[in-house]
Amino acid sequence: MQTRNVIRYLNRIDRRVLYTLLIIAITIPFFFTIQIRVPISRQTEQLYKVVEALPQNSFVLFGADWSASTRGENRAQSKALLIHLMRKKIHFIILCFDPQAKTLMQEMVTGMQKEYGYTDGVDWANFGYRTDQVNFLKGFGPDIPTTLSMDINGKRVQDLPVMRGIHTAHDITMLINVSGSTTTETYIDYLQGSYNLKMVAAVTSVMIPEMINRLDSGQLVGMMPGLQGAIEYEQKLGYIGKASAASVSASVAHLLIIALILLGNIYTLIEKRMSSSVRGRN
């Protein structure tokens, strides 16, 4: 009788109960500061070493192709990479193929530049949102100044000290792409391959299986895999950022999903057994 009541209860669980459980699972951990040390994955370790090996005053193209929808993963990834670049006094320019990334990145770097002694236009520049990635990159590779033309503040490439000596893709020391879409593959197809560029990527968790092949082939020399990669990178940098703060929430949400899958299957199993025993008695 008791088993039957449990079955009846499990069968009647309203989806709003599940939604409430998820809200609780995500929000409660935010009220506690729990620092969990995680093992560093091979991909993140590789990425860290590549950035660490960059000489001072190298020139990095930072492709930011994410929006508010994937901010949970990509923002923490971008910040961790920018901290590493700025600590090493590496010059970089930002290029976006997502309209939201332009302002999201501008806010982030503007908030960080004072701490690291960076100046807009001198040590870094934001070239904002560009449309049609394929055709843009076809022009960008052989002639960067003409294709970029001016930054988001309206300053011409020729007037930006950060762009001094940068003419073609051969002048780029490394390409970083933080992405929540297919832009990484397009960068590989139209820029990395043609100019044999050193390229690394920070991608969302769902993109990991596709990017692992690019890593195996050597097209990528490092990868930050999802939020977990950002947590690992923050750990390597010795800094507690958004990723570390969100790690418990993300973990609890995943554990809730695992628990619900198990519960749903246990319920189905019990129900199946009960119906077969009733059939057996009849």
Partner: peptide, 17 residues
């Protein structure tokens, strides 16, 4: 299901613990 669970556990900080 088993593979999905292992990948999920391996991808989160608490699972790795």
């Amino acid at each position: 299901m088993v593979i999905a669970m292992v990948v999920m556990l391996g991808q989160i900080a608490l699972g790795q613990q």
